[in-house]
Amino acid sequence: MKTRVSLWMLIVVLFTAFALPSSISASTGDQGINEKLGLPIVVYGEALSEAQKAEVSELLEVNQHDQVDEFTVNGQDLANYIGGNPNSNMYSSVKIIHQDNAEGLNIEIVTPDNITQVTKEMYTNALLTAGVENADVLVASSVKVSGHSALTGIYKAYDAKGVKLDEERMKVASDELDIATDIAEKEGVDRDKISELLTEIKKQIAEQDPATREEVEQIVQDQLQSLNIELSEEDRQRLIDLFEQMRNLNINFDQVQNQLEDLTGSIQDLINDDGFWNSLRNAVQDFFKSLSNFINSLFN
């Protein structure tokens, strides 16, 4: 009997160690004031109540830093940076920690249930388009929002610190986010699949350096076909127009090629994630069924 109980305990320990997923999040631990890169920046949505602001502050772990630079983003900022509605209510809030060159751009949505349309891969794609690199960015909201206004908060953070992002690139990045979320909603295409499409098109633009609209159109069409995505003619033209704008802005995606490669890998992991968790669910069910049978045999 003692041997059987010991074996049962060993099985439970091994299952706990290897089968149950662990929570992984971006590390933003306080290591004092970085005099080279500056203080972390926190930008709160103006529409937050004091209680909501306190909740967001806790979510973004603001108190773990000795000092932060704090700002507020409002509808007028939305109008100034990307031509949005100045009467918009702004809820999405962000924390930005600048990193050394080559560290890459790392996005974490702290409240995924409250950011309903924009994925972290969409944010990454749009921010690379806007020229934001080498930073850890955390996004949070205390209420359900689409997530679009977080871009404006990031733009304001850079502006307030004296870093001028290109206005045209910011506008194109906002258009990119709008198109990505619109296509996902209207066409019923998985959001991760849309992110993969945008990333692959950028990679091909970096490799092929298209000189004409027709070449951009061919790249878009090739990637739609490669990923087996069918779009309406209207949405296909929106994509072509978007990347034609990028071509005219001479955005050099060669500079962020490694980040685009990393983004492709992370998106693929997400796309394959459902299969993994389905397999794990089945394994868990089988495990507990076998465990139940085993325990019953101990007392029979």
Results as ranks from 00 to 15, higher is better:
Val5Asn: 07
Met9Gly: 04
Leu10Gly: 09
Ile11Gly: 04
Leu14Ser: 11
Thr16Trp: 07
Phe18Arg: 11
Ala19Val: 03
Pro21Ile: 02
Ser23Trp: 08
Ser25Tyr: 11
Ser27Asn: 13
Ser27Arg: 10
Asp30Met: 05
Lys36Met: 08
Lys36His: 09
Lys36Gln: 15
Leu37Met: 13
Gly38Phe: 07
Gly38Glu: 06
Leu39Asp: 10
Pro40Gln: 04
Ile41Thr: 11
Val42Asp: 07
Val43Asp: 04
Leu48Ala: 03
Leu48Lys: 01
Leu48Asn: 12
Ser49Ile: 05
Gln52Cys: 05
Asp69Lys: 15
Val73Ala: 09
Asn74Ser: 11
Gln76Glu: 15
Leu78Gly: 11
Ala79Asp: 10
Tyr81Ala: 02
Ile82Ala: 08
Asn87His: 07
Met90Glu: 05
Ile96Tyr: 10
Ile96Arg: 02
Ile97Tyr: 04
Gln99Asp: 13
Asp100Pro: 05
Ala102Gln: 14
Gly104Ser: 10
Gly104Thr: 13
Glu108Met: 06
Glu108Gly: 06
Val110Asp: 05
Val110Phe: 11
Thr111Arg: 00
Asp113Met: 10
Gln117Ile: 02
Thr119Lys: 13
Thr119Gln: 03
Lys120Ala: 08
Glu121Met: 08
Tyr123Thr: 01
Thr129Ala: 10
Gly131Gln: 06
Glu133Thr: 15
Asn134Phe: 12
Val139Met: 01
Val139Glu: 00
Val139Ala: 02
Ser146Gln: 10
Ser149Trp: 07
Ser149His: 12
Leu151Asp: 03
Thr152Phe: 11
Ile154His: 12
Ile154Lys: 01
Tyr155Lys: 01
Ala160Ser: 14
Lys164Cys: 05
Leu165Thr: 08
Asp166Trp: 10
Glu167Ser: 15
Glu168Ile: 03
Arg169Ala: 14
Met170Asp: 04
Val172Arg: 04
Ile179Val: 14
Thr181Cys: 01
Asp182Cys: 05
Ile183His: 02
Ile183Asp: 00
Ala184Trp: 01
Val189Cys: 05
Asp190Trp: 02
Leu197Val: 07
Leu198Thr: 09
Ile205Thr: 09
Ala206Gly: 03
Ala211Thr: 13
Glu215Asp: 14
Val216Gln: 00
Ile219Tyr: 01
Val220Pro: 00
Asp222Glu: 13
Gln223Pro: 00
Leu224Phe: 03
Ser226Trp: 02
Leu227Arg: 11
Ile229Asn: 09
Ser232Glu: 11
Glu233Trp: 04
Ile240Asn: 04
Ile240Tyr: 09
Ile240Glu: 04
Phe243Ala: 00
Gln245Lys: 15
Met246Ala: 09
Arg247Met: 08
Asn250Pro: 05
Leu263Phe: 03
Gly265Phe: 03
Gly265Tyr: 06
Leu270Trp: 04
Asn272Tyr: 06
Asn272Phe: 06
Asp273Phe: 12
Asp273Cys: 04
Leu280Gln: 09
Ala283Cys: 06
Gln285Tyr: 14
Asp286Cys: 06
Phe288Ala: 03
Ser290His: 14
Asn293Met: 10
Asn293Ile: 13
Phe294Ile: 05
Leu298Lys: 12
Phe299Glu: 07
Phe299Arg: 10
Asn300Asp: 12
